[in-house]
Amino acid sequence: MDVKIPDNELEVITVSDLLKRVLELKKSGFRFSQANAALIDGKLELSYSFSDYENYALHTLRIVADTGEEIPSITQIIPAAVFYENEMKELFGARIMLIDTDLNDRLYRIRQKTPFGKKETEAE
């Protein structure tokens, strides 16, 4: 079997570049793979991974945003991202604007609001 050496690229971009880069990646044949959030040192790190299933390359877009910062939704370009964005919004409290199907905290039926996000006490 021919060995595929995965290209694991990480590209840090600004919030305003997000939609442009996503569109470019989509046009060049990449498929949306996943999106995740992480709260590191009080800042939200959002990673959007795209993979090319022809050569199994992986390209990740990373944006670092303040917790209150508005982040545009990519669901208009990539419908698959809808639940990832809802998840980031519900669990981490990322302010993702204009999600295609915004479930309004109904994807995860949990009692606590944004359990992994910035705690209220920390914010004060």
Binding site: M1, V3, K4, P6, S33, Y56, A80, A81
Partner: peptide, 28 residues
């Protein structure tokens, strides 16, 4: 492809995707 499905579910529709092709463990 549009909705990002994976695994046997995607392969049943003709998307040739199998992460074992990455060659982790001893698959290579």
């Amino acid at each position: 492809n549009e909705l990002g499905a994976v695994g046997p579910f995607a392969r049943a529709s003709g998307v040739r995707v199998d992460m074992r092709m990455l060659g982790y463990a001893a698959y290579n």
